[in-house]
Write a protein that binds this DNA or RNA. Structure first.
Ligand SMILES: [Mn+2]
Ligand SMILES: [Mn+2]
Ligand SMILES: [Zn+2]
Ligand SMILES: [Zn+2]
Lengths: 140, 140
DNA sequence: ATTTCAATCTGTAATGAGTTCAATTACATA
DNA sequence: TATGTAATTGAACTCATTACAGATTGAAAT
């Protein structure tokens, strides 16, 4: 069990190296968290989740790592929540639904091609987001 | 000229009354600004623009009015800019493009129906936004 | 006209996400 | 082992937004 966990972290280390990212323990742990959670976490959520494993962890480090990961294309930055930035471990283009009651963000899989445009009305597109807000299934 | 301006402000007063909104001078001026600008302004932009006409104006009042207008459906709240909320004087559903260089937000008119859904995957939709980010025509 | 009362406005203080920065630590290489 | 660069840390800071309490407004009621 411990050995298996160690193997998984070593896999992440190799992934980071292959992307020209120095695999610090902090970066490995953030990557591991993102890989295993689909909750579109905020910096604070990640901090609370992994600071137990890294007693000296600084929240600034989480900010640094996520900004770096975003630049490297490992995570996507979601501005759907006006209170704090949320992050997504990108797989494929998809939309999001954020519940105004519980704050949860759900993945939505639409048959829409708006996420795949290179240009719109002459502007060069680098990111595309389809965001819904309302009341989620569970809160209805 | 002055008379015509006064007539326009009186028209706004009637519009607000018809929506069960007490037509204070501050509210009329914010409405008038939104009606005449398509720049998706922030609170600060509106404050700077109209505080000359209202010497005692408080920025808190702009926050109050915009939150109130949003609740009444007069303006739409855009979270595309992670630094500050931007507001839109709604006409019809449309998408937005925000330039990462100059910060300007452009209206985009797509032939997409994603903005018109009532439910997605069981969740009740109240707002829908299609947001693009990149480099605008002018900054390219 | 004066009183009354709720709604609105104002300004200051508090909150909290995110950034800056200088000092410390980790780690690869010589 | 010594050195140098990159990463981490934590405190101070910025700045958008909210909370709050007192002042002002304006429309009834008397
Ligand atoms: Mn997602
Ligand atoms: Mn618009
Ligand atoms: Zn919910
Ligand atoms: Zn631009």
């Amino acid at each position: 069990m411990v050995n298996k966990n160690k193997t998984l972290l070593n896999e992440i280390k190799e992934i980071l190296k292959s992307k020209d990212i120095k695999p610090s323990y902090q970066r490995i742990m953030v990557y591991n968290y993102m890989k295993n959670h689909r909750n579109h976490p905020s910096v604070d959520t990640i901090f609370k989740a992994i600071s137990g494993s890294i007693p000296t962890l600084s929240k600034t480090t989480i900010y640094n790592i996520l900004n770096f990961f975003a630049k490297k294309g490992i995570v996507d930055t979601l501005t759907i929540d006006k209170n704090e930035v949320r992050y997504d471990f990108i797989k494929t283009p998809h939309a999001h639904f954020m519940c105004k009651i519980c704050g949860e963000i759900f993945d939505i899989h639409l048959k829409s091609d708006v996420c795949l445009k290179d240009f719109v009305e002459g502007h060069k597109v680098e990111d595309a987001h389809v965001d819904f807000k309302g009341v989620c299934k569970g809160c209805l």
